[in-house]
Design a binder for these strands. Structure first.
Lengths: 339, 339
DNA sequence: TTGTATGCGTTATCAA
DNA sequence: TTGATAACGCATACAA
């Protein structure tokens, strides 16, 4: 089972120092004479010594692993998060683990606890909606495992949070619809009980209020962030005796579902119905007409999360907890016909 | 740094045996009296002993990790693979790592080598196109790291391969188009130099040959498995003086791109143009009309890959290397107008 | 069938 | 500023 690779003992012998001194060198300890450090460093490079992560893991009871914990079925979202984290992890020794969990399970906390005990990751990136669970954050604290909660609102102290400004972004998007002349605007919101749908709805209402428009409860539908639920909600809205002239959907999938439903009912998009989504998934520029939407900076959020986990000394990064979403204007919004 | 958790020593002391005996129990060694095993097992359960993966990793120089190595930008594909592997890993101690690589990099092999040295995963799942690189497989052999190559054709011996029957599946799909009366069938193939596009093209040609139809080179376009390339290729096909009455695209994204292009040119789908894709991504049932396509059993393939990695004693699984694709009939295919 | 002694490659303690 | 020695928690060779 010997790997044949040089170990800290080889370095110590060749540099004629103790292994503890070598350990100090590879850990950048300040208690070290420059001369010794240089001699040891020279040997390290000469024989190509690389510290064993397994041995360090045993000694420190913590692995060189960043883990993503999630209960989120959206493929593009997940891959974007992974991509963002991996960008930051490139050229480091850290690796990325992915651990899905079931938020509806009675064993949720127990399962996360078991994962932490088993793999002892260096840090955790908690994705919504799991990130909104204070119990999970408490478990991380208990284990002394670093963690970042990702969400649409500030979840706990800045050093443990990375967030987008969903409410404000949606307010701008809906204000944009209003500025185009729309006054009957439908809302397809996300599932109840989660933060991001609530924030996005709040932004929707704020935009109406700012324009002195009333929220018509008949124009609000609840979906599950899925294409199918978007179709259903959209169908229900366009079937109204007096359908809306525009719809804001809480994510792109539902927006595209609504477009399909409207078209099935013989409507032209955007002539008969303007639609705005949220996310800016690749899909949104692939549909026809291309979808006006809010760009959710999820890749950057994930990068920033990883940066905070592995560079706690970067005080500037530790303080930053907000990345802004912005409206992307494409072809799915025009003024209403009667305007 | 003590974790406070019970260790193998605690078990040994309480059960009044040596730690080696405990080690035998947790490793299911046959050299053990039933009485001893039961007594030790009882203590293990009583004090809730869980072996430390870090300590085992150091002793065995191998981690309880299955890693996916890939250079594949497709989100749905990646998440499906991860999902399949995680299905098999659930209720085991194994975790999942994800490691993207750059197949065009001169350091590709060096990078994979570094990853193996660092994290010492128990097994690797190699995704196409990386899986087609014999050098990568050789590196795995060299490190004694188990691996499965996933692809559209048998890559090496059965115990290291899991494959789909792309060629046969495409042959059936195109034969289906022919059976509907289509004789001018366009092909949007995937990028040159990879196996899956080549196999799918071979299936296309076999179907034509079987029906005594000639392959018209003017009806063949090459894309990059992206939506945009599908739009471009589709546009180029429908702009022909005598456009095809049907198109087979080597994946769903390009198929949907072709549909968009055709519609932009005023064609009705499927009335003026039938389209068949490949993959059966969720997207394919979300577009309008819903897309007739070939279901690629990627989740099952990934599950099977993980099973082979962590259950080498399952001889039946080790022998199985083929999972079949099947045609999913939806709404994007009808007979041609003139038929 | 069981135990002893040692190895795996690092970090931590505490003394020098 | 350095080093000897002991963890860390398990597995293995070899002996009994």
């Amino acid at each position: 089972m010997k790997t044949g690779k040089p170990t800290i003992n080889d370095v110590a012998r060749l540099a004629e120092v103790s292994k503890k001194t070598v350990s100090r060198v590879i850990n950048n300890s300040p208690l070290l004479s420059e001369k010794t450090r240089e001699r040891v460093q020279a040997v390290i490079e000469e024989i190509g010594f690389v510290p064993s992560l397994q041995a360090r893991a045993l000694a420190l009871s913590r692995n060189w692993i960043i883990a993503v914990i999630h209960d989120n079925p959206n493929a593009q979202f997940l891959v974007n998060v992974q991509h963002g984290i991996l960008q930051e992890l490139a050229d480091t020794e850290y690796g990325l683990m992915v651990q899905p969990v079931d938020r509806t399970s009675a064993n949720l906390h127990e399962n996360i606890r078991a994962f932490l005990e088993r793999h002892r990751p260096y840090g955790l990136v908690l994705l919504p909606p799991i990130s909104e669970d204070d119990g999970v954050a408490a478990i991380c604290e208990e284990f002394g495992c670093n963690y970042i909660r990702m969400g649409s609102v500030k979840l706990g102290p800045a050093e443990h949070t990375i967030s987008s400004n969903d409410r404000e972004a949606v307010r701008e998007a809906v204000s944009y619809l209003i500025s185009k002349g729309h006054t009957r605007i439908g809302l397809i919101e996300g599932p109840k009980g989660f933060t991001s749908p609530r924030e996005r709805r709040a932004g929707f209402e704020e935009a109406l209020t700012a324009a002195r428009l009333d929220l018509d409860p008949d124009l609000v539908r609840t979906g599950h962030y899925t294409f199918e639920s978007g179709v259903e909600a959209g169908q229900s809205l366009v079937d109204l005796p007096q359908p809306p002239t525009a719809i804001f959907a809480s994510n792109d999938e539902m927006a595209i579902g609504a477009i399909i439903a409207a078209r099935r009912s013989g409507m032209l998009i955007p002539e008969d119905l303007s639609v705005v989504g949220f996310d800016d998934t690749p899909l949104s520029s692939h549909v026809w007409p291309t979808l006006t939407t809010v760009r959710w900076p999820i890749v950057d959020m994930a990068s920033m999360a990883a940066r905070k986990l592995i560079h706690p000394e970067d005080k500037q990064a530790m303080k930053k907890w907000l990345l802004r979403s912005e409206l992307i204007e494409r072809d799915s919004v025009i003024p209403p016909r009667k305007f």
